[in-house]
């Protein structure tokens, strides 16, 4: 495993830890999109189906279990925890899952490498992950008060796939793999969606201002 990949995974892990920390410490999920979190549960469930079928490494299996467990834990907090759920921005988190899940599933049925159950779900998970942040970004645009933890959470979540792009470039030149259009393009689109957010996040950090996204 190269440094980009490890940095990407650690960034991803850190973003989740930060979100759980925010929820547990402040007993609030204000500014967090339940839609995005639920999409992540779908992403992880469809991608990590191979968890009990193919063994890669202890690291790989552990990380998959952590991502599955924490994503479900976050959704549980937002939906069922009696204090946390009252802080959820129900009225502003209006993006519909359906409009992302259905097109991604149809696309996975049309564009994939092999027509097998596992492969279609794996492809679907990559397509869905690339757009899963959209409800969160829409919610942030509507929020006038984005707290630091939420801003940094989204930043780390975006940076993770960006680091994977470097990892893919590195692997392409150092390993004997073929061109992998599906993860590469999905990852590129995923990172591109964050571009605007990155710009405003870094600007607010440099100027020591509160983060605010233009509507």
């Amino acid at each position: 495993m190269n440094a980009f990949r490890l940095a990407g995974d650690m960034t991803h892990l850190l973003s989740i830890i930060l979100l759980l920390l925010k929820i547990r410490a402040t007993k609030s999920c204000a500014g967090i999109s339940l839609k995005t979190q639920e999409l992540y549960v779908i992403v992880f469930m469809s991608r990590y189906l191979d968890l009990f079928r193919t063994y890669y490494s202890l690291y790989n299996s552990l990380m998959k279990i952590i991502f599955l467990g924490t994503s479900m834990c976050i959704v549980w907090y937002m939906r069922s925890h009696k204090v946390v759920r009252q802080t959820y921005n129900n009225d502003e988190d209006t993006f519909r899952h359906f409009f992302l899940v259905l097109p991604c599933f149809v696309l996975a049925l049309l564009v994939h490498r092999n027509f097998t159950f596992i492969e279609i779900l794996w492809t679907f998970s990559l397509y869905l992950e690339s757009v899963a942040i959209l409800p969160q970004l829409v919610l942030l645009q509507k929020s006038s008060n984005i707290d630091n933890l939420t801003g940094t959470y989204v930043f780390l979540l975006g940076a993770y796939r960006g680091l994977y792009l470097f990892n893919w470039v590195y692997r392409f030149f150092t390993e004997n793999h073929r061109v992998r259009w599906i993860p590469w393009l999905s990852g590129l689109i995923q990172t591109a969606i964050y571009t605007d957010f990155f710009y405003y996040y870094i600007r607010s950090w440099k100027n020591r201002e509160k983060l605010k996204l233009p509507a």
Binding site: N60, W122, R180
Partner: peptide, 10 residues
Amino acid sequence: EVLHEPKDEL
């Protein structure tokens, strides 16, 4: 040549 895509990533 590797026949299948490596799915060793997360």
